[in-house]
Design a protein around this nucleic acid. Structure first.
Length: 475
RNA sequence: GGUCCCAUCGUCUAGUGGCCUAGGACGCUGGCCUCUCACGCCGGAAACGAGGGUUCGAGUCCCUCUGGGACCA
């Protein structure tokens, strides 16, 4: 699964590559065999594709390159940048305990570093297990981080670290550096949590005779409680946002704005505009809280910017999925469907809103909501009478397409009954939609069509009659 | 515990020494539009963590503290 945090770093990487005509390389760092199932990898690929973040090379899987990583460790060994370490787990634990007792941070003592190479080779040949450790030189390792500026660590703080396990498996830092090198990576944008790995990777790069890439460490995302984003905070994967009915461009837009801004007041931007405005230097070093309120608003903004065709394409699966209509039916009534979408559009923020809002316009039963009934049909007898008049007025029209003509009729009904316009509109709205909110009533009538509208009024009248009968019986 | 990173409205952010009586957006809120809701438009409340410096002048530079976080243990 692709976490929103991971998606955000993907967005930054993609934006940078597209901005400068670079190559976006997709590499899956799946060294954690347990969690890296085929399904998990596919989910990541699918999410990236859905977001519109296409890659130029890959996907490469780190787990398939262990052979190469082991070779690099050997190269380090031969070049004198690494050595075999025969320390046992017990010895290492003792060192660690001593450091802890002295309230020092633990770094390997470098004991095996002093072993003459011939001795080490002989012991290895004799079958004694060993790890390969990087020989960290004295000094300090620094780099110009694109978001944090000059950043660095004292090398003695790092200590000779393992690059290859005794079972021949590579340590992450070795794998990452070697892969970056082999894949010609020039820019690495990743989470802040990798900062302390960076000096080790830089050291490996240099030992391998290469200059490290440019690093940009973006701060992590947190939940509203300022805790690391987790299940508790609700949706956290791209897939979940897709299922909730967010548009990919809205999610990308939102993610891009978390820790980056174009420098002016623009906020609603599509992929093209984001690429045009992007720059690594404008990423902030401050961690951001992932709150969805603004994302919802952004989704509405992107919904508003979709062409009619794009909107129909995005909404159709939801309408079909909810069983309001079949795909064939929507295709057949395309002009009508698009017109319906237009009146619903400003009222929708998420894709499923079209299902809720759009239900009354399809020939399926609707429910009358309690709040609507209580508010506008409180007197069932009066409401029934009004609806009877309205039915008659509407039935006299050839169709309900001419909003002005329909309005004139409805106003006549209000005039005849000597009541306000709104007094007739609200009960009518409940009859047609079951709800107390909807698009303008004449848009509703036009979108619904004469037949369905009259049948909805008939249903309402029947409902109201049952209601009055029940009420009479109760008294 | 060690090292490193961070610190402007509730949230996302603009701000790179004077343009800041701190700007925008979401959210909240008052109003307009109006057949309801939404959209849209107009208005409001709301922030530079604290203390020291440097400077004619600091949100902006330096130091300390405080707070948050990451990694390692």
């Amino acid at each position: 699964m692709l976490h929103v945090g991971g998606a955000r770093t993907a967005v930054f990487n993609w934006l940078l590559a597209r901005k400068h005509g670079g190559v976006f390389v997709l590499r899956i760092e799946d060294t954690d065999r347990e969690r890296s199932t085929d399904a998990a990898r596919d989910a990541i690929l699918n999410s990236l594709t859905w977001l519109g973040l296409d890659w130029d090379e890959g996907p490469f899987y780190q787990s398939e390159r262990v052979q190469r990583h082991a070779e690099a460790a050997l190269e380090l060994l031969e070049g004198g940048h690494a050595y075999r370490c025969f320390c046992t787990a017990g010895e290492l634990a003792a060192e660690r305990a001593a450091a802890q007792a002295a309230r020092r941070s633990y770094v390997y003592s470098g004991r095996c570093r002093a072993l003459p190479p011939e001795t080490a080779a002989a012991r290895a040949a004799a079958g004694e297990p060993f790890t390969i450790r990087f020989k960290v030189p004295p000094g300090r390792t620094e780099w110009d981080d694109a978001v944090h500026g000059r950043t660095g660590f004292d090398n003695e703080q790092i200590g000779d670290f393992i690059v290859l396990r005794s079972d021949g498996g590579p340590i992450y830092n070795l794998a990452a550096a070697v892969d970056d090198l082999d894949m010609g990576i020039t820019h690495v944008i990743r989470g802040d949590d990798h900062i302390s790995n960076t000096p080790r990777q830089i050291l490996i790069y240099r030992a391998l005779g290469a200059e490290p890439p440019r690093f940009a460490h973006v701060p992590l995302l947190f939940g509203p409680d300022k805790q690391k984003l987790s299940k508790r905070h609700g949706a956290q994967s791209v897939e979940e946002f897709r299922e909730m009915g967010y548009l990919p461009q809205a999610l990308v837009n939102f993610l891009a704005l978390l820790g980056w801004s174009p420098g002016d007041d623009r906020e609603v931007m599509n992929l093209r505009e984001l690429v045009e405005a992007f720059s690594l230097e404008r990423i902030t070093g401050k961690s951001a809280i992932f709150e969805t309120a603004k994302l919802e608003w952004l989704n509405g903004q992107h919904l508003a910017r979709l062409s009619p065709a794009e909107l129909a394409l995005a909404v159709t699966p939801w309408i079909v999925g909810a069983g309001l209509a079949g795909e064939a039916e929507l295709a057949e009534r395309e002009a009508w469907f698009r017109e319906l979408l237009e009146v619903l559009r400003p009222r929708a923020r998420l894709l499923p809103d079209f299902v809720t809002l759009g239900r009354p316009y399809f020939r399926i039963p609707i429910e009358y909501r309690d709040d609507a009934v209580a508010r506008f049909w409180s007197d069932p007898v009066a409401a029934r009478g009004l609806l009877g008049d309205l039915r008659e007025a509407l039935a006299s029209l050839p169709d309900l397409d001419d909003k002005a003509a329909v309005e004139a009729r409805v106003r006549e009904v209000a005039g005849a009954r000597n009541v306000d316009f709104s007094t007739v509109v609200h009960p009518l709205r409940v009859a047609l939609t079951g709800m107390r909110v909807s698009p303008g009533i004449f848009d509703v009538l036009r979108a619904m069509g004469k037949d369905l509208a009259l049948s909805r009024i008939d249903d309402a009248i029947a409902f109201l009659e049952r209601r009055s009968a029940a009420r009479a019986g109760a008294t």
